[in-house]
Design a protein around this nucleic acid. Sequence first.
RNA 1: GGCGUGUUGGUGAAGCGGCUUAACACACCGCCCUCUCAAGGCGGCAUUCACGGGUUCAAAUCCCGUACAGGCUACCA
Length: 481
Amino acid sequence: MAIRTRFAPSPTGYMHIGNLRTALYAYLVARKDPEGVFILRIEDTDQGRLVEGATDIIYDTLKSCGLHHDEGPDVGGEYGPYVQSERVKEGLYLKYAKELIKLGGAHYCFCDQEKIDEQRKEAGDSFKYTDPCTSLSLEEAEQRVANGEKYVIRQTIPSEGTTSFDDEVFGRITVDNSTLDESVLIKSDGFPTYNFANVIDDHLMGITDVVRGMEYLSSTPKYNLIYEAFGWDIPRYIHCPPVMKDEHNKLSKRNGDASFQDLMTKGYLPEAVLNYIALLGWSPEEDREVFTVDELVQAFNVKHIGTNGSIFDPEKLTWLNGVWLRNMDLDTYYETVKEKIDEAVKGNFDKKSIAAIIQPRANTLQDIPPMLGFFDSFPAYDNSLYNNKKMKTNPEVALEALKPAYDLLSKHDDWSQEALHTALMELPKQLGKKNGQVLFPLRLAITGMQSTPGGAIEIAAILGKEETLRRLQLSIEQLEK
RNA sequence: GGCGUGUUGGUGAAGCGGCUUAACACACCGCCCUCUCAAGGCGGCAUUCACGGGUUCAAAUCCCGUACAGGCUACCA
């Protein structure tokens, strides 16, 4: 039987990294099977928490990550509808809830909130609701429903015994039924709760492998009781540990900058983000860290998902993003950073050469513009910058190097980087100086910057003869004052 | 409070009873390369696996307890 997994977010805001990771893992589990199917289902049963536009964010995020779903609200499929609120309209959950009642797995409950609160107050800390409606006869309950009394449908839990299941990552989990509470399955507004809808839908959609966060670990036994009451097959469970912001806090939608969208605007690549989050909580068998999504499909193994929560580390993401950027061939790199270069450099320079000098230096797209300011404007700088211990330079040494450099360059016509290189590398020898004593001042003289991406030769080549000489001239005058 | 889960360096982690004097990666620190800054190369960085007991010839690895963390305990998901 082909594996079917689903990603089932509720449209209550943007996608944060923990969510995305769950989607990734569900995707990988499905793709691992050549016949596997990955489904997107929208869980919008909490009408009060819906956020406008949230579903679009989900579509967009999955799309830009390359996590294509085979079935879903936007692409269709044989098991639709894929939006729970639409399924409610079909009366689907209520139908199954009533069947579950007949099977003894659920019951009508007429208790109002005050009654429950009262019991909670009395019980203090160790509260577990004891529902008096459990003992109502079905006839009586149905009569009251027919009379128009407000009701919910609650799960009926056996008072004795234990329920166990095997989780693929956490192993065997066993709980006493007596600790399980009889949660609401159908709310008084007629909508199912997550507790019920996810079981019904997972079964109806033929989900074989349930991939979700471990916050559901402790309610899974309740879900299994429902599966069992219906006589349905229980899926494989893959519960994932949380992604944390720091030692104490899970990543959260509020005051978090770890949404996928945020990371994009911070200049990270979707590929790098996917790669990074795959590594949060999962480790490959081989000693390697750089993976494309397709490569992850090959390498992924549920058995290597860890059991402890992991802290999202922006520094490592930044490094990995840099690796992705550096691994690109120059044409691809140029295409991806073109926009950033254009943003920072308006002058008529060869942008591809600029791309070449920043490629080993930028870890995120955002790093790029601040590096390039000196192209458009020649910044004012102080002569003291020529003092450099390591380079063994000072203003005098600089002047001794810059004047002959000017003479040489003004007579030099082949402005290719190679030609400039050969010409300028001769100069230190002729002057009896070290390379750094000539090239360091030269770079400073034409950029006004203490440090720049690229060296004097590379930058001179990009600036062009006219601009290079112009700046050099200005710097020499400044030194001679 | 109850129930369930987890705890290897600053971070991600490997390890699943002897091969571990605890991989690898990020960060950090050195050195090398070098016209700056990066990139790259090399090396350093946990005498110890939350703590305390126990089992065993042998434990980070198994068991128990304690501490701590986060999860569930909603007509949220």
